[in-house]
Write a protein that binds this DNA or RNA. Structure first.
Lengths: 330, 330
DNA sequence: ATGAAAGCGCTAACAC
DNA sequence: GTGTTAGCGCTTTCAT
């Protein structure tokens, strides 16, 4: 039925080993032999069975990707970057949605190990203790893209949210802003913590407080922006820092519906940097993150682990840039 | 090192066959034996090697997904639907980006076959002849989600673009619109053809012509909307039907920048139905497609093929709904 | 209800 | 440069 390496060997009058060498580009084959084998491979339309190869070699050239939600623009952008690099290095990617739920993450992780993946990329806003522990004792290399573990000992690729947050907060403080608000939610718990940390640091340096009522943790969706606005509006904020673009846009619209002028009455800036930010009017001020690269660099790092290449930095921090657009004052 | 079925068998004092039966839920095992084996499995932390299983059984419980671009909202939504159903049926998904490029599609297809996937889901706006031919003679089942082949003989899940287009065109004709425009592009060639067909049918019925200059085929991106608007504006259209949401939003903004009032001077309606349509002001009128379901139903159909279940309809057409929002007149 | 044994298609020593 | 052979870890007849 299906043509195997054995069929090719017989037709080409060589051993299986030689066919295997040809297929795998092993140089120890006489050119004449190589040509003959290749001719037979072509003629019989032989296609190596990756499963058998995986069993024999203990390498599957497959990597697992644990992702909160592929339909989320932020993550799908990472996924694209990561898959492009995987392909470049001849790896296939098994992608599975976790909703950033620890139980699902662990289940997916075990499934991936059972499939004998050569490595795993973990995407997720938050790393539960259970998940972190599982990754710690993983038998295959794991790289975190777009998140960090508690003690930052796992290989990871990120941007520095704390710093971005400080920079933004400082800018507004210098502009005389006194009343801040913060909105987060969804998968981005780690980002929340860091952004909040950055804000609080600068705020307290200047004797400004961020009241509880000016902080809202919701669900990262557009529609949740309305709730966020309703929740914080009584503190009469001048500026709101919002993790999610969608949520931020929701806030802008809710504020406008409430009769506020953007950015004169309320300024909004977000951290996700999906393509969305330029698709709305006014354009959303935001932290430009290299989403594609966070995925791509993560995968590149993983390939190094999988191929035992030397690792310079197991924790890489990519640059960001803050763009003040239409939802903030000049 | 790694614990195998043989280790479990030895510890539990049974044969490998029995362990295999327990693991696979074969009922022909005495409960006492089953318990003993399970205890050992637990104790040794045995995890079946899916690769070995795949080689022996010729089933990998893995399906391949060929997708134009996972970072495109339209496709990532399909991908989420499809992965959820795959997971429900215990399948893993290998996802690979094709950019809807025939060469890449074929390469991916062959890689997937070499990985011995049990089936393949093909997503893509267009089906090239080469790709269609390859799918025709595929040794594993293939289902098209969100596209169709020329003679509609391949299993597929879609909505009826022709009809949606007719419905929309008719509505505008009845409202007295005389000057139409059409904008398409990117991956959606099949949708373009159908939408255009639907338009033309109704237009010619009413003696209205769609000038060449009122048709623009671009790249489906937000920024391409500007070019689209520039290209068609001289025909002074009253209504533009646009495949892509992003492009449609670009057109709205370009028209506004050009001093037009939306929807009074220009009406815009799109067909992609990503979450975007409700995130802009004015909200974009659009054809609501069940994106998630197109993916989900496609995967469900594929599972039927993979498990030799009876197939009622190999070509399923899902319902759509047209929502007239802010970019069209009441 | 259980076991023995023959593969699944390939890689990787090792020998020549 | 090429062949021989022993697995890789599992499923699946076929016996019993």
């Amino acid at each position: 039925m299906t043509v195997t390496i054995y069929d090719v060997a017989r037709e080409a009058k060589v051993s299986m080993a030689t066919v295997s060498r040809v297929v795998n580009g092993n140089p120890n084959v006489k050119p004449a032999t190589r040509d003959r084998v290749n001719e037979v491979i072509e003629r019989l339309n032989y296609r190596p069975n990756a499963v058998a190869r995986g069993l024999a070699s203990k390498k599957t050239t497959t990597v697992g990707v644990i992702i909160p939600d592929i339909s989320n623009m932020y993550y799908s952008e990472l996924a694209r970057g990561l898959e492009d690099i995987a392909k470049m290095y001849k790896y296939q990617t098994i992608i599975s949605n976790s909703d950033n739920d620890a139980v699902k993450e662990i289940e997916i992780f075990n499934n991936l190990l059972s499939k004998q993946v050569d490595g795993i990329i973990f995407l997720g806003g938050t790393l539960s203790d259970k998940t972190a522990e599982m990754i710690q004792k993983s038998s295959v290399p794991v790289v975190l893209s777009g998140t960090l573990d508690q003690d930052e000992s796992l290989p990871s690729v990120n941007i520095d949210y704390v710093n971005a947050s400080k920079e933004i907060t400082n800018k507004f403080i210098e502009a005389g802003v006194k009343r801040f608000a913060f909105v987060g939610g969804g998968y981005s718990e780690k980002a929340q913590i860091d952004v909040l940390k950055g804000m609080q640091t600068l705020l307290s340096e200047h004797g400004i407080t961020l009241p509880e009522a000016a902080q809202y943790i919701g669900s990262e969706q557009y529609l949740d922006g309305e709730k966020a606005y309703a929740a914080i509006k009584d503190t009469n904020p001048e500026v709101v820092l919002c993790i999610s673009d969608e949520q931020a846009i929701g806030i802008v619209h809710a504020a406008q519906d409430d009769g506020k002028m953007i950015p004169d009455d309320l300024q909004v800036i977000s951290f996700n940097n999906t393509r969305l930010v330029k698709m709305v009017r006014p354009k959303l001020s935001s932290v430009m993150q290299p989403l594609y690269d966070i995925g791509a660099v993560g995968m590149r790092l993983l390939t190094k682990y999988m191929n035992d290449e030397p690792i310079e930095d197991q924790k890489v921090v990519l640059p960001y840039r803050i763009e003040y657009r239409g939802t903030t004052k000049k």
